[in-house]
Design a protein around this nucleic acid. Structure first.
Lengths: 139, 139
DNA sequence: CATTGACCTTCCAGTGACTGGAAGCCCTAG
DNA sequence: CTAGGGCTTCCAGTCACTGGAAGGTCAATG
């Protein structure tokens, strides 16, 4: 199977598949003409990558998960630990975004949004009182 | 005021402040020795940037907001429009993350997480049925 | 047999928003 | 006079791709 088919079956763009090979996430065979060819096992790995990436795992986490995936002596506790950390991260991100939404909603609700220049949104952005000056809180 | 003080007062790292200057978001003066010096107006712009960035506006959106900020003939409707688009984006992101959390939570809850290799998380990642193979859905 | 067009290859560069680090100047205190 | 801290510029790296150029391969068509 060539990269085009692999792309279609895995749901990943061909460019991304080549990139994953570059960084060592899989090693497809090569035909005589230099074309990559993908086995069904390769397709499984690609689908696995597509799913775990879309669940918010970083590429490095996917690498870990893939190695556990291919290890018949793995312990499910190892996998669960990774997933639970990710769950916490997702929860944090949601909480952060909800906070942002509240703040922005508040600003938007107080702006009449007409032809006049008075704008509580800009006022809010230029002088909010309640947060201390700190370096790089967001990461 | 030198860049160190500007950093402290704005809550932005000095590197970031120089970067913002690089991309044309502000133009502080220079002292005889080549050091940048920041007026109180500069500090206001920096704080404005810090706040709007932390609210999820992209640097380009911040550039727009800054230009509205400095335009006494602005119409508050323009600002509100930008903010409302951002609100929708934040809502989308939250919804997406909540979906991720549900899926991952489901997988985690079904994994006993012990020394055995059986793992519903890996199973779920390797063969989930209900999503079609499509290119780059997430953005 | 030549050509077209789709598909494949490699390589290089760009994205966004910084961040790290090296090499070197400036200023003040001891 | 030296040590330190702060400032300067410039270059490279991050993450996970993505775009594009230049060119090789293949199957089908005229």
């Amino acid at each position: 199977m060539n990269i085009g088919d692999a792309s279609e079956r895995s749901g990943l763009p061909a460019k991304t598949i080549r990139y994953y090979e570059d960084i060592g996430l899989l090693k497809p065979g090569r035909s005589g003409n230099g074309y990559r060819h993908y086995s069904t096992a390769d397709i499984h790995r690609l689908k696995f990558l597509q799913r775990s990436r879309s669940l918010g795992f970083s590429v490095e986490e996917c690498r870990q998960l893939l190695s556990l995936y291919g290890d018949s002596h793995r312990e499910s506790a190892d996998v669960k630990a990774i997933a639970e950390v990710k769950l916490v991260e997702i929860d944090c991100k949601i909480a952060e975004l909800v906070g942002l939404r509240e703040t922005l909603r508040h600003l938007v609700d107080h702006c009449h949004g007409d032809e006049r220049p008075e704008c509580p949104i800009l006022d809010g952005l230029s002088a909010e009182e309640d947060q201390p000056a700190n370096q790089s809180t967001t990461h």
